[in-house]
Write a protein that binds this DNA or RNA. Structure first.
Length: 485
RNA sequence: GGCGGCAUAGCCAAGUGGUAAGGCACGGGUCUGCAAAACCCUCAUCCCCGGUUCGAAUCCGGGUGCCGCCUCCA
């Protein structure tokens, strides 16, 4: 099943063919580290982590770069407010980013380049653009001459006439054309600045991504991605400057995630409706956040609400329960096998599931193929989740049988862990508790009572455990218990 | 004003020409000492109007409503 990717550049799904056989060069526009990330940021970073994981699962070697924009107007303002230096602000929020993304199970990129560590690259980039006549310096600022790039507007489907007519472009006397954008910004007194041929200043916003992407991935990337708001002007500008420099296509596939809205509006600091990841994680498990975000296709906007999160939590619990039940059944089997061995009998021979086995095995293979088909189709995680739920149902049905086969349970387990490698939806590891022994003792006591049909005692113990957050369930295979989170 | 997207059951959400996935909630049932979990059954004709087609949620035209981008933004 070949992978298809919806390419913003062509507005259609295209077969994915990386430049080099099994290698993928992927760049995602990372955060401007002036604050903690919100759930909209998280959706983008989470989704592209899944894209990367899926590509890896398909055997691609992915080189994944995600930048940190660690100097810009907002950082400068923040530093002034806090009376910190810009690097301090950056360091602080980079650390926050690492924590928040890790909490969500988002894996770090292979390389997280920072703007401030690539000033020489950026200056060289700008110099070359000036040599080519597509950039010009005015009074310590350097601008990109948009009119020198005929394809400007191709990604965002804007013509330059439209853009000028739109006229929401700030009037800057220094620019030849209102659409021209800054490559280098002259520093104001006291601002963080670097020396350059045009005087003290700092890079404009767009140039950093081009410079770092090319530096680490080469002149043509396979995948360049980000939130949909970056389509214009950020990505448009990246294309212009990069292609003006190299004369080659900058990226082959452009991918954009839709936004998360709150109260039916895009989150923004000015509206005061921003929901930070760390705040959300105070009350919602990270697995649930992942499940929620992946249950909507990445190009469809999603609306945050308490109710929706609550639904997602219940939905995810079905996966959690399935996993718990599978592990329970497997551990009970081990116990039985241990008993059988010590008793020198073959009572626990698990091949007893008989005629059902080939059918179940076939079902598993079918589910595997269907999951792959959905993911290969432009990373349709919503559809992939539907397959996951069908698998959950099939497994549960299988688990209902009195005799199950060990190899089949292993196969089921492998199915879910393979999917987990891509989507990351199985329960995150829980810290070990120290009162396990005590609980086991109580459960044993309850079992004794049950054996005597002493329901009063049995129920009393169950209630007691419940108060301590322990759920006890009686199954044909014995008692299953777990901690409720 | 320009560009783009979306509208599917009570809720969330897939599906881009062949007769509506999946989840949550609801109702009925099975299992269970009771319960939990699980399983079974039930639950929509896809915003409106017109068109193309043997056939449309899916294509075209026109409405209505919502959202995003055009300025920093995932």
């Amino acid at each position: 099943m070949s992978i298809k990717i919806y390419n913003t550049l062509t507005r259609q799904k295209e077969p994915f063919e990386p430049l080099e056989d099994k290698k993928v060069k992927m760049y995602v526009c990372g955060p401007t580290v002036w604050s903690t990330i919100h759930i909209g940021n998280a959706r983008t970073f989470l989704f592209f982590d899944v894209v990367r994981r899926y590509l890896q699962a398909r055997g691609y070697e992915v080189r994944f770069v995600e930048n940190f924009t660690d100097v810009d107007d907002k950082l400068i303002r923040k530093a002034q407010q806090l009376n910190w230096t810009v690097p301090q602000v950056a360091e602080h929020y980079i650390e926050a980013f690492r924590q928040d993304t890790a909490a969500l199970g988002i894996r770090p990129a292979d390389i997280h380049p920072r703007v401030t560590e690539h000033i020489p690259d950026i200056i060289r980039f700008i110099e070359q653009l000036m040599e080519r006549g597509v950039a010009y310096a005015v009074d310590g600022n350097v601008y990109f001459r948009v009119s020198a790039f005929p394809n400007y507007g191709r990604l965002s489907r804007h013509s330059m006439d439209d853009l000028v007519a739109g006229a929401r472009v700030e009037v800057d006397e220094k620019k030849e054309n209102p659409l021209d954008f800054a490559l280098w910004k002259k520093a104001k007194p006291g601002e963080i600045a670097w020396d350059s041929p045009w005087g003290e200043g700092r890079p404009g916003w767009h140039i950093e991504c081009s410079a770092m992407a090319i530096r680490y991935l080469g002149e043509t990337l396979d995948i360049h991605a980000g939130g949909s708001d970056l389509r214009f002007p950020h990505h448009e500008n990246e294309i212009a400057q990069s292609e003006a420099l190299t004369g080659r296509p900058f990226a082959r596939y452009w991918m954009h995630t839709a936004h998360v809205t709150v109260e039916n509006e895009k989150m923004s600091k000015s509206l005061g409706n921003v929901l930070d990841v760390r705040d959300l994680l105070q009350r919602v498990r990270p697995e649930v956040v992942r499940f929620w975000m992946l249950s909507t296709h990445y190009r469809t906007p999603m609306q945050y609400s308490e109710a929706v999160l609550e639904q997602a939590a219940r939905g995810w619990e079905r996966i959690e329960t399935m996993w718990r039940n599978l592990e329970f059944r497997m551990s009970q089997m081990e116990n039985a096998e241990g008993v059988a061995k010590s008793g020198d009998r073959s009572a626990a021979d698990s091949s007893g599931a008989s005629g059902e086995q080939p059918r179940v095995w076939e079902t598993i293979q079918d589910l595997k193929a269907r999951f792959d088909r959905e993911m290969a189709d432009d990373f349709n995680t919503a559809d992939a989740l539907a397959v996951v739920f069908e698998a959950v149902k099939e497994l549960n049905r299988y688990l209902e049988q009195p005799d199950v086969s060990r190899p089949l349970l292993e196969e089921w387990k492998r199915l879910f862990t393979d999917w987990d490698d891509v989507l990351g939806l199985l329960p995150f590891a829980a810290p070990a508790a120290d009162d396990d022994e005590e609980i086991r003792a109580l459960i044993e006591e309850r079992e004794k009572a049950r054996a005597k049909k002493d329901w009063a005692t049995s129920d009393r113990i169950r209630e007691e455990l419940q108060k301590r957050g322990i759920v006890v369930q009686d199954t044909p295979q014995g008692v299953r218990w777990y901690r409720k989170k």
